[in-house]
């Protein structure tokens, strides 16, 4: 494939590279540059201020509050999602009857997988708006169900004490199904004889999950972890649409902080970019750390 390859390389590569550099690479570089200015918006001048924005950021209680919430999300959303995902995937893969045939999937497993995956194809906007109605303090599904049982109901998103946990629950709800399917696909690659041997040896289901399934699926779990961690550091759309960070900043996350700073009542573009830069380094370190900590030897089935 030597002769006449250049016309193809040029026509095939130049348009994508131009598009990519113009809309993706150049904004990223500009973001770092803008973060060191005091740029206030559409027409005002941008003066270089060095690292002043980052200094302000360090003393900004709203930013710290948002970061604290992101940290809690980071600590809980990946764990809960992965545990539930592994649990349901295990149930589906080997919850069936154990006859002499060995390990079988549960009845109706395909239907469960189809249904569990629903939230994944829905737009986050729809999920946020729908759950906002589910949490509605008067006519919502949850309140009326609790009232129907004669129990008192909290005001869910209206109460600073509960709002954050309500948002967190939706994050887990919207992600679990995807990981059930993902882990299920990874489990089906594990030879069934391994499970049969373990069950014959009398291992309990929990032990099997912890000592056999988890190590075998480690690569997949690790990727899931990185993704969910990045998701937990973002969480912008769900929060913005369900609570807009309220009540009383109890559900605020760093993404909402940045959006409000840039496109809210005031347009502090320099400061917003500084928040963006911090988010970038946080995301990067979380991704690198989880890959580092989770590194193990690969297992290959012969």
């Amino acid at each position: 494939m030597k002769h006449g390859k250049w016309p193809l390389i040029v026509t095939f590569l130049v348009p994508p590279v131009l598009l990519y550099v113009f809309f993706v690479v150049s904004p990223y570089f500009q973001a770092f540059q803008i973060s060191t200015t005091d740029w206030l918006g559409y027409s005002a001048d941008a003066n270089p201020v060095g690292l002043a924005n980052f200094k302000t950021l360090w003393h900004d209680d709203y930013v710290w509050n948002a970061l604290k919430n992101n940290a809690i999300l980071l600590g809980l959303v990946p764990v809960l999602t992965i545990v539930l995902g592994l649990f349901f995937a295990t149930m589906l893969a080997m919850g069936g009857r154990k006859g002499s045939a060995g390990v079988t999937g549960v009845r109706g497993g395909a239907l469960y997988r189809t249904v569990y995956f629903f939230p994944q194809v829905l737009s986050v906007v729809i999920i946020a708006l729908l759950w906002k109605e589910v949490y509605h303090p008067n006519k919502g599904l949850l309140t009326t169900a609790l009232h129907g049982l004669g129990l008192p109901a909290p005001t869910w998103l209206g109460d600073p004490a509960t709002a954050f946990w309500c948002v967190l629950a939706v994050m887990v709800w919207s992600n679990v199904g995807f990981y059930v399917v993902l882990f299920g696909a990874a489990m089906s690659a594990v030879p069934k004889e391994i499970y049969e041997a373990v069950l014959l040896d009398g291992a309990s289901r929990f032990t099997t999950l912890r000592r056999v399934t988890l190590p075998l699926l480690w690569d997949t779990v690790q990727v899931a972890w990185v993704y969910l961690a990045i998701f937990a550091l973002d969480g912008f759309i769900l929060v913005q649409l369900m609570t807009n960070g309220g009540p009383n900043f109890s559900t605020d996350v760093i993404g909402v902080r940045m959006y409000d700073t840039a496109f809210g009542s005031e347009t502090k573009f320099g400061y917003a970019s500084a928040i963006g830069v911090v988010m970038f380094f946080l995301t990067l370190s979380v991704a690198v750390l989880s890959l580092r900590i989770g590194r193990r030897e690969r297992i290959e089935y012969s």
């Binding site: 590569l13 590279v17 113009f22 809309f23 993706v24 500009q30 970019s273 830069v277 988010m279 995301t283």
Partner: peptide
């Protein structure tokens, strides 16, 4: 080099580019 320029974009959150992107699009 060009390949990693593209693939490197996988690591960056869209958020970081949001403010400058707004102006890149507006100026164009």
């Amino acid at each position: 080099v060009v390949y990693y320029l593209f693939v490197g974009g996988l690591m960056f959150p869209v958020f970081l580019a949001l403010v400058p992107l707004f102006f890149v699009v507006r100026n164009a």
